[in-house]
Write a protein that binds this DNA or RNA. Structure first.
Lengths: 256, 256
DNA sequence: ACCAAGCTTGCATAATATTGCATAACATGT
DNA sequence: ACATGTTATGCAATATTATGCAAGCTTGGT
């Protein structure tokens, strides 16, 4: 079993994933198997956790359980699943254990909700029933913002959402959007939806926009806040460099 | 059982869940099986309870009835589906088109949510995500009360629910319960849940309790309001006539 | 009211994680 | 080939977490 040749990081990660496929493994088991120090195994596991592929626990790690629970709210097919997933993984890297975060509606943010199992002891506030369904059994503390239900996005929106949002503060807010431009910032098709987004922008320590590049430069009907409310934009690699430059000029961090 | 190495926390938890799937287990049984101290078993059980997966009882633990893997819509594990359905139909008769109603958690109220399609232009306020899922595409206007998510009942509970409930008024509130006695009225296992029930009782024109006869005379931990807050009780036919007489004496309408 | 069994809490200890740092391996440009 | 900066790895000191044990309190049954 033990090959002489030294294994590269991605090879080790592959093996780790395969091992974890069957059952949980301890650090020492993996260290022995891979013939590297436990410190290195920990670093590998850390990296895999950042990618949302595994969950570290005291003493070892387990594979992420794709909670294949019943679709309380059945899901529509998302258009670019792999890009959304990549964006979600970048967003995951911004979250620390014990954070209080806000999750907005939209399929990209939903992709983030699905991999939140990699973190511990989060307090998640959301207006998205899809995200809520995803997190029901995550073990994280879950707070749902009340309000009028908007069937199209399956989110809670409108003036009533202010009642709860205004009493809370979140460390990081992850928002989705329909359109995003330099001039107007984020915009959506529904005024109530925009209203709620604006509320949470004010209550968030850090506002993080998740938007695949198809949203950039597009403008929709109802505008929420301004560009200056956004701290970070996470998007995919087909972002034009001109757009990226503009954002950075405004002091917005860009991750791709 | 090859106890070759130390088990990781999630492994233990998984085994515990599997064991409980069959029947209730005592702490000492689990301690023996997992080869850890009883203190550790208790900590594991505590964690599982926080996740809403089990319920701890004196001497051991049992699996939660509303367990994660159970499909929401085939919630046939409800103990008496046909009686709940009959109760729901009676409740439906109290609802008029264009009413504003409140739906509480619990399987009996959920049965009512499932047949609300028979009515038109309702405004439905609820703290139950199960009911919300049911009504998502019903065409009725849907308002969800925000708050802390309680996995056990899949409802929103606690102080935050007050933020929205207190700004609303509903014509009729349909409540479920764990226990119902002449002395104390309705009672549940969770203080936050009780708190929210009490709130809605104050904001409802008419409070209607849906309770199959197994709930009557039973008393649980946390009491919500008093008997005088209830206007109507809908139950099944195996209600004792003595109990019915007591209720009528207090001015409560009884439907069976 | 009593007792035994079970629960909670605080604490000591062992196991595991994290961090900083030194070194080795690697890549890059000259 | 060499020097140089970068990354990966291992090691060790320190911090954190999990576990078991024991004292005191609570529960449930008689």
């Amino acid at each position: 079993m033990d090959s002489k040749r030294k294994l590269l990081t991605p090879e080790r990660e592959e093996i780790i994933l395969a091992e974890l496929g069957e059952e949980a493994k301890t650090i020492s088991e993996l260290s022995l198997k891979l013939d590297v120090s436990e410190a290195t195994v920990r670093r590998d596991l850390l990296s895999l956790e950042e990618q949302g592929k595994i969950k570290r626990v005291h003493g070892g790690a387990v594979k992420m359980k794709f909670s294949e629970h019943e679709p309380v709210f059945n899901e529509k097919e998302s258009i670019r699943p792999e890009e959304k997933e990549r964006i979600a993984k970048l967003a995951l890297g911004l979250i620390e254990d014990k954070d209080t975060i806000y999750l907005d509606g939209g399929s990209t943010v939903l992709a983030l909700a699905k991999i939140l199992g990699a973190k511990k002891s989060l307090t998640v506030v959301t207006n998205s029933l899809m995200a809520a369904a995803e997190l029901m059994e995550s073990g994280h503390s879950l707070i749902i913002v009340g309000g009028k239900f908007r069937p199209l996005s399956r989110t809670l929106v409108g003036p009533l959402t202010a009642k709860i949002i205004e009493t809370l503060h979140v460390d990081k807010a992850f928002l989705g959007t329909i359109g995003f431009t330099i001039e107007d910032g984020i915009s959506t098709t529904d005024a109530d939806e925009a209203f709620t987004k604006e509320l949470i922008l004010k209550r968030a320590g850090k506002a993080i926009l998740l938007a695949d590049s198809s949203k950039l430069g597009k403008k929709s009907f109802a505008v929420s806040g301004s560009l200056s409310d956004i701290d970070v934009v996470i998007t995919d690699s087909s972002l034009s460099s001109a757009f990226a430059r503009e954002l950075k000029k405004k002091g917005i961090e860009v991750l791709t």
